[in-house]
Structure formats: C-alpha cells, structure tokens
C-alpha cells in the first residue's frame, strides 16, 4: 500500500501532465480550477490519467458530481441548498467544504477540488 506522500506525488505528476502546470504549483491546498486553471474537459482528462496511473476505475460523477449542481432540488438561485450540501458531503467525503459552505455559489464549486481532496479520493480507491 503506497503512503499518502507517494500517492500525492503521483497525483501531482498526473496534474502536471494534464494541466501543463509546474511541479511547485501543485500544492496540497491548491484548487484545480482556481489555482491550477482546470476547465471541464480537464476533469475527464484527469480521471483518465488517474485510472491509468493507479490502475483504478473511476466514475467521473464520483469525483466531480456535476449532476448534483444541475439538479433543481439541490440548487436554487445559483446557490446550493441545505439538502444539496448534505448530498455533496455524502458524495465527496474527502472534499473540504469549509470555504464553499460560506457562500455556496455554484460558480465557486471548483474550490472544493483541492489536490489534497483528489489524493484522498485516490487513496480511498486503492
């Protein structure tokens, strides 16, 4: 079983290749969209690369649950509802929602996807 540090290093390598960023930009608390400039197609690329790097199988919705954000029962007026937050926490047990919970604006949802969250997600799959 690889250590947290080893998984992190491999996740870093995946993100460097997928996003064309420098090694030192990929810190544990860097967000994929905000800090590393990931766009929606990059998420698919990252999923494919993680699957290959770790020989795991990932359903894109597990890691990036966009369908929650498009569901009216979870989002109202561009903000995630209490029910939506509950669903997101259930779907993404490894993500850190502290900052996002403050304004719940769907446009800022990307900030829950930190490098650390992706690393923990991968560890849960190993």
């Amino acid at each position: 079983m690889p250590t947290h540090e080893e998984v992190f290093e491999q996740v870093r390598e995946v993100l460097v290749d997928a996003l064309g960023v420098d090694d030192d930009e990929v810190t544990a608390d860097a967000t994929l969209t905000g800090d590393l400039g990931a766009e929606s197609i990059d998420f698919l690329d990252i999923v494919f690369r993680l699957e290959k790097a770790f020989s795991i199988k990932i359903n894109q919705e597990e890691l990036f649950p966009q369908n929650v954000l498009q569901d009216e029962q979870y989002v109202q007026d561009g903000k995630v509802t209490d029910k939506g937050m509950e669903e997101l926490r259930k779907r993404l047990p490894h993500a850190n929602f502290d900052k996002f919970d403050a304004d719940r604006d769907v446009n800022n949802f990307g900030e829950v996807f930190t490098v650390e969250a992706v690393t923990k997600f991968v560890e849960s799959k190993l």
Binding site: I41, L44, D45, F48, E51, K52, Q60
Partner: peptide, 8 residues
C-alpha cells in the same frame, strides 16, 4: 480511453 463523456 473512451467512455460516455469522451475519449483520449
């Protein structure tokens, strides 16, 4: 790789 969403 190819799946529902796309391919590489």
């Amino acid at each position: 790789r190819i799946d529902e969403a796309g391919a590489s």
